[in-house]
């Protein structure tokens, strides 16, 4: 049994040789490519995850951007509509004002011309009445003066008036 704890030189020799050889060969042809492939794969996974996260963030940003743009557009539209409505109101109001002024002007001139016509008519009527009155008076006088005594009476009256003056 003492053989059990006596290291034998032959086995140490072969073991050292074999281990160094296997370490060299595996180190060069197995562990290096395996570890490289593993770390490359891990890197790829990490990159893919990062890209996915970035894409998600971008999408969220894009979405909020879109929303903002939409809101802006909506605001713009509302503004434009309001402006249009205002312009329309202004135009209508202006037109109304102008129409009112024109109407007033026409009315005023109509009233003037009516007044003028009226005055003219009144004057003519007056003239007509005066003329007719003169004619009537002439006729009456003629009829009155066709009788002598009456002519005399008138003369006397006229003379009386003159003497009184």
């Amino acid at each position: 049994m003492e053989k059990l704890i006596q290291p034998e030189i032959g086995l140490i020799f072969w073991m050292t040789l074999s281990f160094v050889v296997v370490l060299y060969i595996l180190g060069k042809f197995a562990w290096k490519p395996i570890l490289k492939a593993l770390s490359e794969r891990e890197q790829n996974i990490e990159e893919a995850l990062n890209t996915a996260r970035k894409a998600k963030e971008e999408m969220i940003a894009l979405k909020s951007d879109n929303e903002r743009l939409l809101n802006e557009a909506r605001g713009e539209r509302d503004k434009m509509l309001k402006e249009a409505r205002d312009t329309k109101d202004a135009i209508i109001a202006e037109a109304k004002g102008k129409a009112q002024a024109e109407a007033n002007k026409i009315m005023a001139s109509a009233r003037d011309s009516i007044n003028n016509e009226k005055m003219a008519a009144i004057t003519e009527l007056k003239n007509q009445v005066a003329k007719m009155s003169i004619e009537i008076a002439e006729k009456i006088l003629r009829h009155e003066l066709s009788q002598d005594e009456k002519q005399k009476a008138l003369m006397e009256n006229l003379i009386r008036d003159i003497s009184l003056n």
Partner: peptide
């Protein structure tokens, strides 16, 4: 060991990614 791990290394190269 050499057979196992060189063949495993080969499959890492063959099935890259």
């Amino acid at each position: 060991m050499l057979w196992i791990f060189t063949s495993v290394a080969k499959s890492y190269k063959r099935r890259e990614g």
